[in-house]
């Protein structure tokens, strides 16, 4: 129960035990991934054979390809970064436009539109993927039949992956940025306008700086969600695999600890992003 009410000793003990068990459950999978990145054995499994950096640096004598020499894996990281950069840019831009549309503009059908903007969040990712895949190839066929143009970007590949991820990440960016714009004190804009500032100048010097934390936050979230997306990407991917798809393929084959090495990097990168976000959020509040 709550601290102000008497709690029997067994309940206190059970609480502590529960928290300990819960945290173990949360962190055990991550801990083993990190630990076995350094195990001197060809498979990420016990027993412990000693510490090695082979899975990062590679070891020609033992025939081990380390993460830094694994061109396929490094290539897929780059692919993921490129896709994530596109998705982030598009999502934040659209999210900002949508925020102004929903918080400032008045037009008929606004309620329906705001409902519609939430729909992408309740469609399973796999279905977003197949619907965009099917629609894009129908358009591609149409292009071929009508104009005799080969519209390759409508075939499975990175452009479609970007569009597929963007289709729902944009909804998240819209929610985040709208929430902040809603709390904005509009008298600040009126004051600037009264003092003779032009509308674009007000936007640039007053409103956008106010939105900055939400823009940075939604950009970080968009990047991370794109980088980690699997379901939608799986359906739309062509020849170049982003990292999650590449890892999935290797995990089915029974992978070497190189995957642990790359996972460790992902953990550190996510932690860095999370930390900047938490810090940024705190600064915005103060």
């Amino acid at each position: 129960m709550i601290p102000t009410l008497p709690r029997p000793a067994w309940l206190r003990a059970a609480t502590v035990l529960y928290v300990a068990a819960f945290l173990t459950f949360l962190f055990l999978p991550l801990a083993v991934v990190a630990v076995f990145a350094f195990n001197d054995a060809p498979y990420p499994a016990p027993p412990w054979h000693g510490f090695t950096l082979d899975w990062f640096l590679g070891n020609d004598a033992a025939g081990r390809v380390g993460l830094f020499r694994d061109d396929e894996l490094l290539g897929s990281i780059w692919t993921s970064c490129v896709v994530a950069a596109w998705v982030t840019g598009l999502s934040v831009a659209l999210g900002t436009a949508n925020a102004f549309l929903m918080e400032r503009a008045r037009f008929p059908g606004k309620g329906a539109l705001s409902m519609l903007m939430l729909i992408p969040l309740v469609i399973p990712g796999v279905i977003l993927g197949i619907s965009i895949l099917a629609f894009a190839s129908r358009l591609a066929e149409l292009c071929g039949d009508l104009f005799g143009i080969e519209a390759d970007f409508l075939r499975p590949g990175l452009p479609l992956v970007v569009l597929g991820q963007f289709s729902y990440i944009a909804a998240i960016a819209t929610l985040t940025i709208s929430a902040r714009l809603k709390r904005f004190d509009r008298t600040l804009e009126d004051a600037a306008l009264n003092l003779g500032a032009s509308a674009p100048a007000v936007l640039w010097t007053i409103t956008l700086p106010y939105l900055r934390p939400a823009l940075i936050g939604s950009a970080a979230i968009a990047f991370l969600m794109s980088f980690e997306n699997f379901n939608t990407t799986l359906m739309l991917v062509g020849g170049d695999s982003p990292l999650t798809i590449m890892m999935y393929g290797r995990m089915r084959e029974g992978a070497t600890p190189v995957l642990n090495a790359v996972s460790l990097f992902l953990m550190l990168a996510s932690a860095a992003i999370a930390l900047t976000l938490v810090r940024g959020g705190r600064r915005a509040e103060s």
């Binding site: 999978p29 990420p44 980088f227 642990n260 996972s263 953990m267 938490v278």
Partner: peptide, 30 residues
Amino acid sequence: VVCLIPFWVSETVRTLGWMILLRESGVLPA
């Protein structure tokens, strides 16, 4: 915050962790 941390990491990585823990040659069976 501690509860949120694991979910910043990709689902692929978390699943890899469970596979290392649970497979026949893995940590928990051993």
